[in-house]
Design a protein around this nucleic acid. Structure first.
Lengths: 148, 148
DNA sequence: TCTTATGTTCAAGCTACTTGCCTAATCTGT
DNA sequence: ACAGATTAGGCAAGTAGCTTGAACATAAGA
């Protein structure tokens, strides 16, 4: 193989990406969190470390603040996140994960590991490392957003 | 770089995938096709060779036949596809690309090449080939569907 | 032929977004 | 200190892109 083919590369990338999302989603549901969609996972990724405001979350997800607020309302009802006063700004609310939210995050990590495992069997550890390294090198630095 | 990290791999894969979709979408719009969404591209991919029926398209996109029919209606109004009688089955309609649909397909291919080009500059031709090869090896064989 | 399966369409409803406007709190310049 | 601009969030209404449910036409099989 001497030259790459942009079309084939794109198909491979999008196929694998879709398979990963499907696999994680299925794994999360299989672990008992069956009331969540992939988009919620991207919210969790932003909320996980220290929480975030509605505006920060909206920027991360690339949606309007109203859409982010609506998503947070839904996650509150389902018990995954909580809304509290922001320590530094009385206008803002700090959205953080509940215990259930953290449990779901751990489930998502386990599901991700499960989804990736077969790739290690196909490619071997060395090439999978190279794949990871190359992907991270060409990845943009910005936030991790839903694919569309 | 001894062990891979499933979390980092997933982030890299999804980030690059999203960047690719955004890049192709922007490139297609920049070439004058500004009334299309990424989902339409997945439809074009199925219709391009020899056309398809509504049912086949629906299976490819993983949506209901009604949704596929609605998408086709929209593409007909915009002039990208045409609906004709199916040669083998009087119940079915054969959906095929118009000249404009083919022009858009070529624009998408050019946009894909543009989006991939910087990666070759970062990784080099050899590692990009390896990346493509590895992705195609772990990709599922099924149809190329929108990521969610 | 009669029954069932398949391809498509019509109609209605739902969900996750959007735009537009509003209030409350914070920041900035004088 | 204070008036104006900016920023965080919420409320209401509208919309795009799907869904389910039902109907009808053609095809395939007993």
């Amino acid at each position: 193989m001497q030259h790459h083919d942009p079309q084939a590369l794109a198909v491979g990338l999008l196929s694998v990406s879709r398979a990963l999302v499907d696999g994680i989603s299925a794994g999360v549901r299989a672990r008992g969190f069956d009331d969540l969609r992939p988009a919620h996972g991207f919210a969790f990724a932003r909320l996980a470390p220290d929480g975030a405001s509605i505006t920060q979350l909206a920027e991360h997800l690339d949606v309007t603040r109203q859409a982010a607020a609506q998503l947070v309302d839904e996650l509150i009802v389902k018990g995954y996140v909580q809304r509290s006063r922001h320590p530094d700004d009385a206008r803002a609310r700090l959205i953080t994960l509940t215990d259930r939210g953290w449990a779901c995050t751990r489930a998502a990590e386990a599901a991700t590991a499960d989804a990736v495992r077969p790739w290690a069997a196909i490619l071997g550890e060395q090439r999978l490392c190279a794949l990871q390294d190359d992907l991270l090198r060409i990845a943009p630095h910005g936030p991790l957003r839903p694919t569309w």
